[in-house]
Design a protein around this nucleic acid. Sequence first.
RNA 1: GGGGACGUAGCUCAAUUGGGAGAGCACUGCCUUUGCAAGGCAGGGGUUAGGGGUUCGAGCCCCCUCGUCUCCA
Length: 956
Amino acid sequence: MVQYGCRYRKLSAFSRPAKQMKTDEIRQKYLDFFATKGHTVCPSDVLVPKWDPTVLFTPAGMNPFKDHFLGNVELEFTRATSSQKCLRTGDIENVGRTAYHHTFFEMLGNFSFGDYFKREAIHWAWEFLTDKQWLNIPKERLSVTVYLDDDEASDIWEKEVGLPLDRIQRLGEHDNFWPAGAPSDGPDGVCGPCSEIFYHPDSGGECEIWNLVFTQFNRSGDPPNNLSPLPHQNIDTGMGLERVAAVLQGVETNFHIDSLIPIVRASSEVCKTKYAPDSEDGRRLRRITDHVRACTMAIHENVLPDAEKENYTVRRLLRRAVFQGRQMGMEEPFLYKIVPAVVEAMSVPYPDLAKTAGNVAKVIQQEEQTFFKVIERGMKHVDKFIEETKASGEKQLDAEKVAHFYQTYGVPPELTTSVAAEFGMEMDWDKYQAWMDEHGQKSGAGTVAVMGNDGPIDMLKQEIKSTPFVGYDSTSASAAVKGCGTTEERMSSLASDSSAGEVQQFIVLDQTPFYAKSGGQESDAGKIVGPNGEFAIEELIKTGDMIVHLGKVTSGTIAEGDAVEAIVDDTRRTGLCRAHSATHILHHALQNHVGSHAQQRGSRVEDDELRFDFANDAAVSAEKLALIEQQSNDNVALGSEVRADTVSLDDAKSAGAMMLFGEKYPDPVRMVSIGDYSKELCGGTHVANTATIEVIEIVSEESVSAGVRRIVAYTGAKAKGNQRQLTNSAEKLAQKLGVTVSALPRAATTLAKSIKGLKKQLSTGVEFKPDPTPAESASAEPSDYFGVREVMRKVAEALSTTVNDAAGRIETMLTDKENLLKQIEETKGVASVSADDLIQDAQKCGDTLLVIKQIDGANSDLLKRLVDQIRKKASPAAIVLGAGGSDGKVLLVVGVSRDLVAGGIKAGDIVKEIAPIVGGGGGGKPDLAQAGGKLPDKLPEALEKAKLIVEQKLST
RNA sequence: GGGGACGUAGCUCAAUUGGGAGAGCACUGCCUUUGCAAGGCAGGGGUUAGGGGUUCGAGCCCCCUCGUCUCCA
């Protein structure tokens, strides 16, 4: 692909009359054209294909058809065409700088799955581009490239289309092969030559507008002779919609086409900066235009800015855009104000944008605020660093530090360097880049995702394509083994092999009752029993439409062709069903009590346990949670029927089933209804009647990320077990504290207070007197579990901990209290020692009072307190106090009054000299120091030594 | 998935680098002021995120867990 930066000689983008073909028309014409050629028009796939782990965002039009190309699914059609929304960040640095780069863009494509090939692909591309009825581009404006060896394509262009040879360029595998460089460098798998079509505008240069990929080979090993023809040849083409629009509208850059210039204008207006195309601000406005469009599209599909994966990509795009604005002087959130312009510009292909526009703007505004806060926080570190650099007289900014500030605090390097520039400092950007590269390296270079079938499971998938799931109504089924092996190789039979160690065995059946993890619901467990052996299931995976049973043969052998019984672990399945139906019931109750915005943001269904994430700005109050729990349990008690129907997507929609943007739904779709109140599109397993759930208990409500809350709840056996446990521990605690259950919160508070008081007594000597116990108010004993839970919640609140931890906390508090009482008992004798007594007993050395005393059993707080008191009453004074504890440890505290410190006598020096005598070490500040040791017998010796030291110091 | 930083009073943050847990704001009480704005004095408020380890001694060092922020995939 050849790219040229563009200079904008014409500044007439705003005023150009839009007589040319509109972007929306081009898109429609493309789809119409290929429909006339027998293609099925497919709607754009979602922006984040969750089913494809190799990519974060849909990068190209062919992505949704991967399994079609590989022959992994039953084909309903062999020709398809689409306009696909795509997002790529690989060229993010080029956005705004070059004429044709975007992060978000639309890709037009036509696809053949083992149907037509090169000839049709080339002829139709030419017809669409040049025919009067379609795009009507002058033929002399176009040229093509083909792969070096691809005589076939070259001949079609020359002899059949009639393109002169001088406009057919032959390029090597790095330009005209997909994947680039595949023949020499791999990867193995399907690949093929391609042919690119270029447009040549007035302004010179060229613009690649269409790439036709002819996948006709399977690569295996290194050259030569490593490309073998595929039995089914495919066509995959991609045409950048924005580029074609730019060409047809005669504008110098994609950003000036009819669907993008309004966003540029809006950005210009919001940022109060005139749009001058060929200026730095012009580039900034184009970057903002691109990024805000990408963010709007992503957030519309519920991909919110956050710290992980695709969410992080959105955050990065958004922050880059905000930073561009900041560089133009914007100090307040502004990006969200451009959202309406995006929605308007994209309204024809994506009318749904209007429905979420308000929310999208809110999300963006919030993230902008967060970003400004982050920068503000980070700048504290940056300012300090620049201050230091300035002080050192260094003019070269430490690139490592600049990278560190970006990686750790999120401060863009441009910001750091621009602040530094005010003080005449510069930075070596190459060094900065090197540090960033190293960081990327350390974080683990991503493995290059390739499209291809490798491994025994993928091979089997091509053969079998899909495994019918028969487990909705039963938990066992007779089946036949269609294939088996280890994750390393396919085998005809599996034997139990204790030496196998890490290698997992797998089995694929012709049908299965086992549910494989999907839609938030975890996998089943169970076993497969054959005539000659048994297989224990450890994990189930769904790849495409095929279900793979992973695990180990536990006895005998299982062989391909065996007739087997597949038996699902019933207890676990029931728990999963209970939790899943409960999830729907809870979702409904949330909609009722929190609001219709409280839509699902994520869900995890386990054995009698569910985790449900939903959109909400703030914590749900305890009262509301109680109502939600109440309504959910009412619906359980109601014994509503749970039904699953397969209906068309349209019918589901009109029936009022909840649908989310950014979710891909099949058509027809499975709709699960509970009673007459809940309808959701869902592929999971459910109870037949809500009564089976027994009980739904909400155990927690917390935040997961900005605007998203999470509820965890238990059902059935787990909820019951949890209730028993909590009731038990409440009763045990009550017994331990010698109170009734209803009095637990007060008892806990009293206990906490007494510990606080006793601690204070130990350190200050002020005796702790517990509050007189208030008259027992007549609170009734809890009559049921929920009453007990209420009591325990109050206990937990009083101790600022969770309900689960409350019991353990009280246990440790009780032992703490015991220990404190013991310590107080031990120090009782010495607590009465007063500063006056010590002064009385002290010697004088010149003017200086010399207090040297052993007070066994005293703690460090007491000794320090005495030092302070003596110093207040008498000065100059040098005080050395020692204590031998019953635990065999020694404590030394040395204090020196200020005037002595000024005279060069330092407590720290003294303590350092005497501490080794008692087998320890010490240190401190000039006026107060402390030390410890392990030899109580030597304490008198140490004190004697201290006396000598002080006397010697005083005499010099 | 990985790298970095952080978690101290209700809030914003200190803690001389391992040696007595503090400041400002907020809060309570009293005083000053015609009143307000404010000022003065006194006071309450801490499991230094939680757990373990090293040490005579840990907010600080090491390990684990939890949480927040950030960058890279």
